[in-house]
């Protein structure tokens, strides 16, 4: 659609520690024209006892798709079913990848603001949460990098934009680090079973590329911090 090859990612840019004064961890991810800001606070004492678990950390994720994010301005209800479903699956994913038993009796609250949306909502949000958690210094087993892939006319396509997403069937995966393990797999419509493998294969390859780019940003930021420390 936008002149990319079938296995090409959109422009991926990320920044971590974008809100050093207001949050424990923060990140900004641009995937194509989608822009997501993620803010992590915690691990902190929970606001109410009922949310407390004696053995592990509890995750609180809120996803705010702003009314101005799409081309036509549209007010979204926070309790919209699709948003709630995404939150639930994100929660399950990150409960598995954060070493939650390191932080008993605490909550980690994650807030994502989607500023502009051009396809790949779940993948952009997942990547931004991973980066913000790393920035907050929360122990994780590995990166969760996420990308979407669709299927059109016998060819798998990587990283769809909004127009492609509207017309094609696609899936979003979250990959654990450099392995081929999936932490997240969301398929909202149908893909023929015999073609699924090819779609997954390019998605995994794309996910590894994104992991490398996120890693590069984290290391760049780490070096920056280190040089500041060294200069003191």
């Amino acid at each position: 659609m936008d002149g990319r090859r079938w296995n090409e990612l959109r422009r991926f840019q990320c920044r971590i520690n974008t809100h050093p004064n207001s949050a424990d961890g923060s990140s900004f991810v641009e995937q194509g024209n989608s822009k997501v800001v993620c803010i992590v606070e915690g691990p902190m004492e929970p606001p109410s006892r009922s949310q407390l678990s004696a053995t592990e950390a509890t995750l609180n994720i809120s996803l705010n798709v702003t009314p101005f994010s799409s081309i036509d301005r549209k007010r979204r209800n926070k309790n919209e079913r699709r948003i709630q479903e995404i939150i639930t699956s994100l929660k399950r994913t990150f409960e598995q990848s954060i070493i939650t038993d390191k932080y008993p009796r605490t909550t980690i609250s994650i807030t994502c603001h989607v500023l502009t949306l051009d396809g790949g909502l779940i993948s952009a949000v997942t990547n931004s949460i991973t980066l913000a958690l790393i920035d907050a210094g929360i122990a994780m087993y590995d990166y969760i990098s996420s990308v979407s892939a669709g299927f059109y006319d016998n060819t798998p396509l990587l990283d769809l934009n909004q127009l492609e997403e509207n017309d094609l069937s696609y899936l979003t995966i979250g990959i654990v680090g450099k392995s081929e393990k999936l932490a997240l797999l969301i398929l909202e419509n149908k893909i023929p079973l015999d073609k699924l493998e090819g779609v997954l294969a390019i998605a995994v390859a794309g996910g590894h590329r994104i992991r490398d780019m996120m890693d590069k940003e984290v290391r760049r930021h780490g070096e920056l911090r280190l040089s500041k420390l060294a200069n003191k």
């Binding site: 207001s22 949050a23 101005f68 301005r73 603001h113």
Partner: peptide, 11 residues
């Protein structure tokens, strides 16, 4: 004009 204001943090 639709003015949408999003306050990410305020102290």
């Amino acid at each position: 004009l639709y003015i949408d204001i999003l306050v990410i943090a305020t102290y």
